[in-house]
Design a protein around this nucleic acid. Structure first.
Lengths: 235, 235
DNA sequence: TCAATAGTGTCTGTAAGACAGTATTGT
DNA sequence: ACAATACTGTCTTACAGACACTATTGA
């Protein structure tokens, strides 16, 4: 039973919400999955670690806001990263100041150096996900981060998104370390190699290019055209 | 570069958004996947078919708003249905009246009779998804519906959610018809039966209960405790 | 030469797809 | 009896997991 039928006719009569985007930016550094966190400068939760994010502007689409925040707070170039919507979080009391709905985005980025200078970059830092999930984060960001990590884990199974964590050119071992870091398991290098090579469009060979790190040189690849894996890579 | 740094300190200075929930309610009737649509009574898009939904109230959590709208607009009991967040849609011009962010929820419900009487139930109707996707729907609801259907298709592969489309008690054939309707394929009844029975916790036998429809009586089952399928049922 | 890493080949068990065959009902 | 539906068993093929073996580098 609708208690306020007039509502359908006058949306502006409804309580105003603030809408923000929050970013779960994941990378793999040295076999460890990291998330980008910023230290909050102001209340609420001043001094506490939080996901980067900010308010959506008046005439800005949601993915545009996510991309803008990514550049502003991290200096990460939007190209060469994967960005997808993770979900929305709107519990009434999640921000003590006012009613806020946060649209979270998941970003999978290749391992870069230290965070480049953005406006707030002085406080932006990479934190191992295992450590971040044990910490207390601002707002409901611990839950958002957990959801993002779980999404990433699931997507590696049936998509080629693992290549989003790699540099433009990478070896099969680089790719395997991504899976091992995100899933927290060890994979047989030989079976992994066979499986990746058997999956049409997963990776594309860079003819002639090899990289050596103290053993037999490894063939170099780039991300292939296939978006999904058939059959999936099981965890 | 942040152009309005004051923004971080005064969220109420940001442009207000209206937040709505929209529902993609899917069922399987007689081997056809249907979606629940309502006819809009007012502008914008007056007279056009749209997903059921409405504004989120001032002190209401997002899933609560989704459940409330489900009952209000369809009379569907919240128990025995699966409800999950689908995604948020906030293109600036999606509602000509003001800036609206819609949080879409996906509902998988068992086949019920005709839509029961809610306030707006006179205009609520089940529409085959294939037909709805060929129609023009209000707002960006065609896209939202397409995303919902694709989510449902994907989830049937690796979860036990197909049972959400079935009545409390069902046969293996009922379950197979759900897969066939959602995926739009024919499955081998014998291999499907074997696969379902081999998956621990997918279905639970109701001892002694059988149902006959002109052939050998079929064993009756209920939804099992397992949430996911290992290995998945491939499309 | 040796350690280290990359890549190939082989064996085995599991499970999917195809489909013959059996079981139990309504008409 | 016969059609219709439910269920079981068998065969073949594909692929994952385990792991021996070969290849090619740096130290």
């Amino acid at each position: 039973v609708r208690s306020v039928p007039i509502a359908d006719y006058d949306p502006s009569a409804f309580p105003p919400f603030a809408v923000t985007v929050d970013l779960v930016v994941l990378t793999v550094h040295d076999g460890v999955c990291n998330v980008l966190l910023v230290e909050r400068g102001v209340d609420p939760y001043a001094g506490m670690l939080a996901l980067p994010g900010g308010f959506v502007r008046a005439d800005e689409d949601l993915p545009d806001a996510a991309r803008r925040e990514l550049v502003e707070e991290t200096g990460i170039a939007v190209s060469r990263v994967h960005l997808e919507q993770l979900g929305s979080y709107g519990t009434p009391a999640r921000d003590p100041r006012m009613r806020v709905v946060s649209v979270a985005y998941l970003v999978l980025a290749p391992a870069l150096g230290p965070v480049q200078a953005g406006t707030d970059a002085a406080t932006a830092q990479w934190v191992p996900v295992t450590k971040a999930l044990r910490s207390k984060l601002a707002f409901d960001h611990r839950r958002v981060l957990a959801d993002g990590v779980e999404r990433a884990r699931a997507k590696l199974e049936y998509t080629t998104l693992a290549t989003s964590f790699c540099a433009k050119e990478f070896t099969i071992t680089d790719l395997r370390r991504v899976y091992e870091a995100i899933w927290g398991v060890e994979l047989d290098p030989r079976n992994f190699h066979r499986k990746v090579m058997a999956t049409e469009g997963f990776v594309t060979e860079v003819a002639g290019a090899t990289v050596s790190t103290g053993g037999r040189p490894a063939q170099v690849f780039r991300a292939g055209p296939a978006p999904t894996l058939h059959p999936p890579l099981v965890r």
